[in-house]
Nucleic acid binder design. Structure first.
Lengths: 203, 203
DNA sequence: GCGCTGAGACCGACCAGTCGGTCTGTTCAT
DNA sequence: ATGAACAGACCGACTGGTCGGTCTCAGCGC
């Protein structure tokens, strides 16, 4: 991110993001990326070792961005419950800001076979553990009911994914509308009282 | 369905389910299916028009099974809230019974490019609308709080998916444990009172 | 001239789908 | 009953095309 960054490399990446997001991994050929970036195969293979690495690089880039944003924002909050709420908000904001990367991360990186699958699960699990950790804190602080936080974390992750995926696909529902809805639903799901939900919603 | 069904066709389908579930669409060649089914390319193309049709056929088959089971079970329940709860249970049971097909449906059918994408979304939406419809009924019957049922339906669908996907991948958490956890979380998420959740859990 | 960047022709592997042919089982005229 | 005629399931070598990746060479700044 980024000095002026010699622009061949960046053009290649831009074209790759566009194509991968639009058509997926297997339906994007290196030739497509070359055409869109007005470069050449030589340039592509000079800057990157393989098509696969370009793709995984983008996935990692997005995961990194999201994780960093989450950690920064969470660190500023004091109670478990607020952290959890913040994490939700940051997720939505980040998915919105990086729509194309989000689509690659959430959709195009799925179902690519055993090789990719493991990495994909690993990243996914990192986020789930993060959610679970803060849910556990909130339980200990007595802010939410004692629950199976592992299942709850999965449910949260899945719920967020699904809403974002629908939005990425169709542009509907807009995140500004989805966020309050999701907030209500997810905060309720862990047994937070109605008053507190309303407090949190006004942040 | 139907008669004893000459077993070449069935062997091909069995092999296809196995391979597609394991390695995904693009990493499964027709030659792989041939090898596993101890048939021949000729046989495959005698029984099916294309690799794509085999895959989509499996996706449709699973969607059909799930939809049928849901409709049958839901029809027997009387209140919206019980219908919603039943739908959740049936989903988990069906995913469990048809683990391989479920993996194809939930994972391998994602990110296959524009051609597949539309169909995939359409099926997904059918289920989401079904959830939403019964949530709406429950709202009208006063069983659950008035909420954004569309968002809630997405959240439910995503939550269920995520838990099942994790289970399909790693075998953990077992559905017997996941179901009560999910039940609690999801029923809470739409504002059902604690007593009623406990009633529903004992069915 | 030398090293870095980029161009694009080319290579080899792979793969979905085809097609001529075989093989098994059934029908029916004798 | 038998064997000729046929049907349709099945076989697998082959084709046409695609695509990731390599290689050679050209431009250019130093």
């Amino acid at each position: 991110m980024t000095e002026i960054e010699n622009n061949t490399r960046q053009r290649i990446l831009d074209a790759a993001v566009e194509r991968f997001a639009q058509n997926g991994y297997h339906n994007t050929s290196v030739a497509d990326i070359v055409a869109d970036s007005r470069t050449s195969k030589g340039a592509v293979y000079f800057h990157f070792p393989s098509k696969e690495k370009i793709f995984l690089g983008l996935v990692d880039e997005f995961a990194g961005i999201l994780e960093k944003r989450l950690q920064t924002a969470i660190a500023k909050e004091e109670s478990g419950i607020r952290r959890v709420n913040t994490a939700l908000r940051i997720c939505m904001e980040t998915f919105t800001s990086y729509q194309k990367l989000a689509k690659i991360f959430l959709i195009q990186a799925v179902g690519l076979g055993a090789a990719f699958e493991e990495k994909q699960r690993e990243i996914h699990l990192r986020f789930i553990k993060l959610i679970q950790q803060h849910l556990d804190e909130a339980v200990q602080e007595g802010d939410i009911l004692p629950i199976d936080t592992e299942i709850a974390a999965y449910a949260w992750m899945g719920a967020i994914n699904e809403v974002v995926i629908e939005w990425v696909h169709t542009g509907h529902p807009a995140p500004q509308r989805a966020l309050p809805g999701l907030q209500t639903v997810l905060l309720r799901s862990v047994g937070i009282t109605e008053e507190r939900i309303r407090q949190l919603e006004n942040l």
